[in-house]
Amino acid sequence: MTRFTSLQRALHWIMAACILTMLFVGVHMVSTVSPNYLALFTLHRTLGIAILALALIRLAVRLRSGAPPLPRDLPAPMKLAAQGSHVALYALMIGLPLIGWAMLSAGGYPVVLWGGIWLPPIAPQSDGLHTALWAAHVGLGLLLYAVVLLHLAAALFHALVRRDGVFQAMAGDLGRERAAQARQPAE
């Protein structure tokens, strides 16, 4: 196995787009008073819950299909960083939407998704809990963006500098041309 399965690649890129959207919508909506605020917030709740569902499916697929091995010559600290950041990304993809949902529940707000879908509360109403979850949602949201930026830098490092096939493992057909070129014997 040198690549993620096509299902894994599809999930990865769809979710990458969704999560980047969520992060930008999140910081934009909390600084907005215009009528866009309500639409952004509805999008944030709806897409956030969709990400939760996709992340759980993705985790199950990952446990079943596994992942291609990292290049043998990748230094141990980099391997550790790669694996650690992937675990962190999975944890945040699942944790952040749950925290958002629980935060609204603790604040006594209904959680209403696009299309008029009302979700039940998943936490008791409580000032203290609301405050803790709010701090966690904001802090972990920013942390997620930081990890995504690192992940992006690492992916480009593999693609442009190391040219070791790690990028192609996720890029799939998009990276095939590159992979073919990378395999040309150096002269």
Binding site: L149, L152, A153, L156, L160
Partner: peptide, 13 residues
């Protein structure tokens, strides 16, 4: 390449 990567990350931030 490293400069390009740094520029992409800086732009995203």
């Amino acid at each position: 390449s490293l400069v390009l990567i740094a520029a992409v990350v800086a732009f995203a931030a």
